[in-house]
Design a protein around this nucleic acid. Structure first.
Lengths: 213, 213, 213, 213
DNA sequence: CCATAAACGAGACGGTACGTCTTGTCTTTCT
DNA sequence: AGAAAGACAAGACGTACCGTCTCGTTTATGG
């Protein structure tokens, strides 16, 4: 199998030697970037500002990242990893108590909590906004940040199908959107308030169906 | 009765006289803004660029709008109105053939077409992205661009409730999200492809329920 | 001989009817222009500022004057006339007591006083500066503001020649510069302090060269 | 001994590191500034224009100079230095042939030539005009551009005093103005033509007054 | 005594330049 | 060689004025 060196942006550039990279600078840049996005918002966060706050030369940023969005995405991924480690629990776990509705409600309630955590909100919104307009970045975000979670929904739904709780012809990749997307949209587009009651209702409507029996 | 002077946002500025406003300039600015967003993207669209392309002084933009997003939102609203007028049909109509599923599928297919129309895509994405990060603008977008359409879904669903096709305790404002939000999210976040088949499936899943009968 | 129609600047313009001109506006413009030059300096005095302070439309300025320098020159000429009227004395008088040195010293001392009058200083400097760089305006200034005074020096010197106090071959137009120009340069270019003692000395030095041997 | 921190004008600004300054840019800015003043006049010379012509960012001008006048003054000083170097001769020399009148006439004729050199005229006028209105700049101009020359007049006149050609009680700093200021004023204010004959006459008239009786 | 035409105040307009800010590159110096 | 520092060319920002061009509103005859 061929070794893939994916992030070699320009063939004209000598490509920096990543083994000599300063770990301290990277950390400082992540911290500065996240702090600035939280404090001032994405638009007012500048590369110069990040460099200054991190006590780092601008070139050190341009050497390793290609854009402000790029820095922020890595910083956010790093933050997410840290949180998971801190939490101590298995990173990607999904409850399976046998009660599908309860399991989904629980996970969605946790998502609601996360969406409201101010530490996450500013960078998440910034990245999401960038992803709306920049398809490449958007796809990267989906792949790196969202897909792992969505895969767990799919797995849980498949289990439910095997247990006869969900009709077998249902495509779980679409079914999960019935509860996940409404929440996502309310949060992204400010189309409505977010609450446990709301997500519970979503699960109820979607799972039991809208039609009278 | 007190004289209401509602739109006096900044007490420092004398507030321009809108009766003297140049209609020609406004049109030119709308056209230039939309064209530039389509051609170069939102980030590379500048106020200077819009002014230059519209053959207008920068101050004429700053006199009437407060930001790039503001210009673009009005331009887009104007575009939407125009389209509606061109279409000739009633602006906000929703079919009611008695067959709820068919009606919803039809409307969603039309939405798919619209989301793919390149004339709409670039400015829509730009505005949506801005709305993600800028709550005030986001709410304005929702109120002015989305709510009218959503109200039609609500009305149609209420009619279906009266016809006994939807359980009466269902909240139509939430129910509509089951088909609308998944499509919105796929489009906004590039989480998946968009097709007639997909939206038809959404309606099927949501309407008939996920649980076996 | 050709008929000269001197003040018809642009043949395309209908030429305003000066009989209908608003005297009140003209006065207000003069006052505003002079006040602003004193308060803020020539460079920071703008046509818009003059119009606003005078409570006048910009067009009323552009209708009657061609430039900021033009407005200020007329305003200053008007001020000079007023002062002369207020003084009550004959506008252009030059003492002739028979003692040339004493007469010159007296007039130069009066000039020193005038150059120090803050009401005159700011607009005078502004106009002089403009005249340095704009030859046409410079020549106008000389002709309208300076020449009348200089002619009096010439007349006085000619009288002195007839009285045998100045050698007959001396050109009075040059001779007067021996006392006037040094004072002018010290004031204009800040090359030295201005005082009665200084102007007295100038007269002493210069007259020696003009007197018969 | 006290540590001198002379050039720290604004405590808010970090003060650029002059050792890293680009000599090429400075030269280009000087050349562009002088060329534009000659071609278009001072008023139509803009910082943007200088930057564009010099192939330089505007900030590079604002980093090192505080105003258009400031740029032009340095550019002109530089030009003056260059001219002196090109001439090869001692920069500040004043002939002393023993014949005071002849020496003065010679120097004044050279000054007439210089005042007519188009390379010098435009920037000189521009700076002089600025100096009329801006006392600080005016004093700087006098100190840097005029005083060195005037000192040579003073020295020559003192030598003449020692040689008994000028009365000992005469103040040379005032005496020199008798020939220099009339020429300066004619040039500055366009009060009259400038010629060798004129300056010769000035020397004749003035020296008579200074010579012993 | 009113009709009408001008000058007027106001200020929107297309522009130019301002002085500031940020970008991404380049260079210098230190480690 | 990587990094901190920061000068540089480029160019957009939002503001201030420019000089031109309408808008109604005085105002001042002259029919």
């Amino acid at each position: 199998m061929a070794v893939q060196k994916s992030t070699q942006p320009a063939p004209g550039k000598p490509a920096p030697d990543s083994t000599r990279r300063s770990e301290k600078s990277r950390r400082a840049i992540y911290d500065a970037a996240l702090a600035l996005v939280v404090e001032a918002g994405y638009a007012k966060t500048t590369i110069e500002g990040i460099a200054a706050r991190a006590g780092v030369g601008k070139q050190t940023i341009y050497r390793w990242w290609s854009s402000k969005a790029d820095v922020l995405m890595e910083a956010f991924l790093d933050l997410a990893e840290q949180s998971v480690e801190e939490a101590g629990s298995t990173p990607y776990a999904f409850p399976d108590t046998g009660d599908l509705a309860a399991d989904l409600k629980g996970v969605l309630r946790a998502t609601v909590d996360e969406l409201r955590d101010p530490r996450f909100e500013a960078p998440s919104r910034a990245l999401a906004a960038e992803g709306v307009v920049n398809e490449q970045l958007g796809r990267e975000l989906v792949a790196k940040l969202m897909q792992p979670s969505l895969d767990l929904y799919i797995a849980r739904l498949r289990a439910a199908q095997e247990a006869g709780q969900v009709r077998p012809e249902i495509d779980p990749r679409i079914a999960l959107e019935l509860f996940v997307s409404p929440l996502a949209q309310r949060w992204l587009q400010h189309t409505g308030p977010i609450s446990y009651e709301y997500t519970d209702t979503l699960v109820d409507y979607a799972l039991q169906g809208l039609a009278p029996r």
